[in-house]
């Protein structure tokens, strides 16, 4: 059976996780990294905006799932992401910057974020996620597809735990799913229940509220 054992999310104003029932506001522009990340993240300043949001949402999701992360330790966990626009904002930034230089110099530290899989790549590096890493897009059904692919990978023993979610320009939202090979974590809901919520195609705040409703009655150890 595939279960959801944690959810983390962040947008430009607030962040939170579901099982631990955390929902906090933060001042726009002041990224609350000390409150969110479990250990020092010295290089976070070089990440693009979407990667920062992604890493924060993944940090909160893992915290919600009770998965402790320490530097240099790797996990049998994968990550699958999606979004609406791919890496479009960074693509524009990179190529405009290159054109502004007179088509002579381009910036490698922008270029590396012109892949839609890069934000989850940053999360994999910081948290030591050594399972499969993919970006999937499927038109209007992308989130459902990501969740289903993650569940399939757990059933097929491709990893013990999978993170699945969306990394948009203004928010990130990640599930932690587990299969039978991982005994840790409190169960928020089944995969089927999570899919029912995802299929409603809600905005971030509505989705958070739906999962907070599912949480009612659960005692978190």
């Amino acid at each position: 059976m595939i279960s959801v054992i944690g959810i983390g999310w962040m947008n430009g104003q607030e962040y939170g996780c579901i099982l631990k029932n955390i929902r906090e506001f933060y001042s726009d522009g002041i990224f609350p990294k000390k409150k969110i990340f479990p250990f020092s993240y010295k290089n976070i300043g070089r990440l693009d905006h979407v990667s920062k949001l992604t890493c924060a949402a993944v940090a909160l999701a893992l915290q919600d799932a009770g998965i402790a992360c320490v530097p240099e330790h790797k996990h049998d966990a994968g990550i699958i992401s999606t979004n609406v626009s791919g890496s479009f904002e960074t693509d524009m930034r990179y190529f405009r910057d290159y054109l502004d230089s007179g088509r002579t110099l381009s910036r490698g530290n922008l270029f590396i974020y012109t892949l839609p899989s890069s934000p989850s790549g940053e999360a994999a590096i910081y948290f030591g996620l050594q399972g499969p890493l993919l970006y999937i897009a499927a038109g209007n059904n992308s989130m459902g597809n990501v969740l289903k692919t993650a569940a399939d990978m757990l059933i097929d023993h491709e990893a013990r735990v999978m993170l699945a979610g969306a990394s948009e320009a203004d928010h990130a939202f990640y599930f932690v799913l587990k299969g039978e090979a991982y005994s840790g974590g409190n169960i928020l809901c089944s995969y089927d229940d999570a899919m029912k919520v995802v299929k409603k195609e809600l905005c971030l705040r509505e989705m958070v509220n739906e999962f907070l409703n599912l949480r009612k009655g659960i005692t978190v150890s």
């Binding site: 998965i67 402790a68 330790h73 790797k74 996990h75 049998d76 966990a77 050594q130 059933i155 097929d156 023993h157 491709e158 990893a159 013990r160 735990v161 090979a181 991982y182 840790g184």
Partner: peptide, 12 residues
């Protein structure tokens, strides 16, 4: 911690 392992042969 989620220990790394080589998974068993999958059910399929």
């Amino acid at each position: 911690m989620i220990p790394l392992n080589i998974p068993d042969r999958p059910p399929f």
